[in-house]
Every structure is written in structure tokens, then in C-alpha cells.
Amino acid sequence: MFSYVYMKVLETVPRRYDLGINLLSLGMVGKVKGDMASMVEEGDRVLDMGCGTGTLAVLMADRGAKVTGIISTAMLEVAIEKAAARGLNDRIEFREMGVAEMDSLEDGSFDKVTATLVFSELSRDEQEYALREAHRLLKDGGLLIIADEVVPEIDSCCLSCLLLSALKKTFYHLTRIPLLILTFVLTQTSTRPVKGLKEKMREAGFRIISTKRAFSLETVIAEKEGLIRPSEP
């Protein structure tokens, strides 16, 4: 009987994904996606890597952008329903594609590339691959905007920074475990923090413009520059 409940519950995860992520980030993910969408201008061509259930894609299309959302899981169906319900089919194209399958997309064909809670799901090899692809797909000067779960770092520039960052880190760890359990029980959704992302972004040829934190989520905005080192080692 128990295995049966497991099975049924797991099959319906895509439909509860949004709720799960909202819980886990204490509602911050909605705010972060809103902020990300506000960076998009009318007529922008945007690639949303790992678009999930299409929440961000819809927000950006609402602002007049032409969005391509790619996803390799069953969340695709939910995303397509969502866009259709808002009448945004002409401005959003969802495609079933993993981050390693973007070969068919043209070089320099996007003004912006976004990725929310995607890099933390990828292996290290996949992260590097996805960043190289994002670099290839962006126009010169195009923006890569990544929001992901990052453990707060200790900032030792001065005493107040040190205390504040230590406090943030403690708060993060204290709240994370109960939230993780609650969210998993309710929606079987989870995230794990990503490490060393900014360094990888620099290596892939991005210049980091700004970073901003909202509870467990960090938004990094970076601009495409020339490659610092060749992609083939």
C-alpha cells in the first residue's frame, strides 16, 4: 500500500513544483522571478534554460519579450498549459530539450539567457557545458541572469560585514532543514545549493555585473565578454 502511495505522489510532482519551490524559498522565488522579468525589455529575445513550469517565461512574455523555454521533464506539459491559458502562445515557444541539446539554436540569437534553480540540478560537467552554450547563444554584451540556491558566504571586509554575513549564514542553515522537510513532505520538491558558480561563469567568459540575495536565493547578472580561456582544455 505504501509503495502505491509513493508512486502516485511522485507522478504528480510537476503539478506541485511551484508550490514546493515557493515554500522552500519562503516565497522569495516569486519575487526573484518578478525582478528577473523586470530586466527584460519589449522585443528582447530570451532563452529560459530549464524553464520548469513556465512561470518566469510567462512573466517575461507579458512584458513583450519573445521567449524560448527549454525543459527536459514532464513539467513541459504544465508550462504549455500555463502559456496557453494566458494567450501567450505566439510569444513563447516551449521545447523539450535538455541543457546539452541546444545545438540547434543559433549562435548569438538571444539578448538574454535566464536560468532559475537550474544549475543546482546539474552535474559539474553539465554546468560548464551549459555556461559555454549560454555564452555561444548570447549576442555580444547580452546578459546571463541566473538565480539559484547559494549558501551565504562569510564576508570579512569589516567587522559589521562579518557579523552580518555570519548571521545570515546561521539563519540560512537554521531555517533550511525544517523547510526542506516540510516542503518535501508536502510536494516532494527539493533543491540543493550550488557551489562556485560565479567562478565558473567567469571562466566561461562572463563578466559579473551584480549579485543580489533574497533569503536562500542569489541572483547573479553577468554580461557576455570574449572567452578568457578556450572552451576545449
Binding site: 507522478e11 527536459s72 521533464t73 546539452a100 541539446e101 560548464e128
Partner: peptide, 17 residues
């Protein structure tokens, strides 16, 4: 069965490795 181990998984590991 649940779509977590699919062609996408295999393509990804083939290319990124």
C-alpha cells in the same frame, strides 16, 4: 517509467563527459 532516466539524461552525459 517516470521520465527521469531518458534520452535527455543519456545525451547529456554523452556530450558533457
Amino acid at each position: 517509467e517516470a521520465g527521469h532516466f531518458s534520452a535527455h539524461s543519456v545525451i547529456s552525459v554523452l556530450k558533457t563527459s
